[in-house]
Design a binder for these strands. Structure first.
Lengths: 351, 351
DNA sequence: GTGAAAGCGCTAACAT
DNA sequence: ATGTTAGCGCTTTCAC
């Protein structure tokens, strides 16, 4: 399988006058090698451009490694369900490497459940961890424990400003808001815009879409300084209240033609616009490729969706961990801001 | 590396009372095995759900495989340069599998050079071929030769309507034109549109963008039946003539506010619009993420770009071939229509 | 037809 | 600190 030109540890052993065992020791930075031998081996390795044969290596080690993936629960139709596809793909890609991907779920609104998930992940004695952090301080603690054990970890979706993570894969939130504003307005005259927000009852969590909103606002300030920006507060868990809010707003501001929402639930708004019979008069921009969002896009109620491929984030995170643990490859970039996909009813089909 | 629950050929040998050699023979359908032995082995294999250890297999075979990639020449700044990134990525992904990716280039305007490239590819005795076909009948012949030799091949960019290919990765061309029309108009009133086309001097090749244009036209017919559609013919190899054409059109139709181009050279048009000082009055939609197109996007002259990730097509094609030759996996889908990326100046940064 | 055995490149346990 | 050796699961050659 190796090319003719490829060199093996046997060759290195011969050339250095040492044994395979010693060569193996320096290759893995194991202790018990004299400086002299170490250097002799290293020289040959570099000169010959030695590449270990992972098959032989894996074959000889015959051990499984497990990677723990700590994510919010996968609820049908909601955002985190989208990550599953990435896990499936990653699993396929690495299963033949003897890597076992284990999803550890937690309730993103329940701190305790996150703590439990962290413990569960640690209990798996994983070779690496990917985590989507929803709780700041708890994640910090988790990170510290991982570092202590020397377990590499990578963030997806959002990250913490600390220094121990191997990599991060996510969307540039501020920019995504900026983009949303541009797509909503597209250079045409826009006098009023409505933002639909979810009212959160004293959540201690930081609002994950706050930077996105900031980006949106900045764009509007820069390009449409005179545009009036309304906010409609809704509550997904209180449908009547939400309906009432939408009705009231519609009655009061029938002239508003542009609506945007920064979380993943634009489908809720779409439903109300349809109910009020104003769907085709209003330009609607939202986020994330939930099935119900895509449906609203197909129906034409939602004009554009900005999606972030959380599945790719997940699979890339796992790949990075595998490359690191098995192949000793450090990611090319630590912070990986991923592309924002723009979806319309005409390109969604092949998404 | 294999899990505890995995069974090896040694186990099978023991259970059937045969030897590893015989088990290997039935696994590879080699001749010289009695029906009785064959069936005994097959029964155990199926019952135990035996999965061969590819590493051990590859290690024992110790052979390289080569995959030939037959593409138009990589010209700096032009479309096919974009595929290189995919080749590099693919090379990284599979090099440790002992797979050698070999690019074989041809001049997309020269039939003879394509013939030569096919011969060169065949001469490599490849385990698989990926080809971007520009010449219909010649590709047909090439395909026939590959089939004859039992070499699997996959198309990228475009494909032929035959039945021997392993897979196809490409953009839905008709749909992409439809999408372009939607993005150009976006529901606002549009009375006139200009299409910039490249005049081809009696090319015998079929115009690769013909379906895209058809999709565009159909959209306009359906949604803007009264819109007047102009065509400006230009020639990249004759700059003065092109400039004259643009000037003349601008003088004659100063009211046109929407421009589209179906090949990858929207940057040419962008330059002229800038020269004429009308760039910010006109909405411009084009295709493909050439560096100069992205620059025009950043400058704001081009409003939207539809890109097709030819690099991903290339790397996925190679992956499919590797999966097939090494892991014996047939692609899940034969025809893979890939996502059309919509780029604006605000999401291009992370592309 | 079938079996035995050597060996792919590497790891790890055991010697020295 | 270094050498030796027995595998990992499979392929392949050679012998019967």
């Amino acid at each position: 399988m190796q090319k003719k030109n490829s060199i093996t540890i046997k060759d290195i052993a011969r050339q250095t006058g040492l044994s395979k065992g010693t060569v193996d020791r320096v290759l893995h930075n194991r202790e018990g090698v004299s400086k002299k031998s170490y250097e002799k081996v290293m020289r040959v390795i570099e000169e010959a451009g030695y590449q270990p044969n992972i098959y032989a290596s894996l074959l000889a080690q015959h051990k499984d490694i497990v990677i723990a993936v700590v994510l919010p629960e996968c609820v049908k139709g909601e955002f985190w369900e989208l990550a599953e596809a990435g896990l499936v793909r990653a699993r396929e890609n690495v299963s033949h490497l003897g890597v076992d991907i284990r999803r550890v779920s937690y309730d993103q609104y329940d701190l305790e459940s996150f703590r439990a998930a962290c413990d569960k992940a640690l209990a798996l004695d994983p070779a690496g961890v990917v985590v989507a952090p929803m709780f700041k301080t708890e994640t910090m603690l988790f990170a510290a424990r991982l570092q202590e054990k020397g377990i590499p970890y990578v963030y997806i979706d959002s990250k913490l400003e600390e220094d121990g993570y191997l990599a991060y894969f996510g969307m540039p939130m501020y920019k995504s808001g900026y983009l949303a504003a541009d797509l909503l307005t597209q250079g045409y005259a826009v006098d009023e815009v409505a933002i639909v927000r979810i009212r959160r009852d004293q959540q201690r969590q930081s609002d994950p879409t706050i930077n996105r909103r900031a980006g949106f606002m900045d764009y509007m300030m820069e390009h449409y300084p005179d545009c009036k920006i309304h906010t409609i507060f809704v509550r997904p868990d209180a449908p009547e209240e939400t309906a009432a809010a939408m009705d009231a707003f519609g009655a009061e501001h029938p002239e508003v033609r542009h609506v945007v929402m920064f979380n993943s639930r634009i489908y809720l708004t779409a439903a109300h616009l349809e109910r009020l019979g104003v769907a085709d008069k209003i330009r609607v921009v939202g986020f994330d490729n939930l099935a119900s969002n895509l449906a609203a896009l197909q129906r034409g109620t939602v004009n554009l969706l900005i999606a972030q491929h959380i599945d790719e984030q997940a699979s890339m995170a796992i790949q990075a961990l595998v490359d690191y643990s098995i192949f000793k490859k450090v990611p090319a970039h630590r912070d990986n801001y991923m592309h924002m996909d723009i979806l319309t009813r005409y390109n969604v089909e092949y998404y």
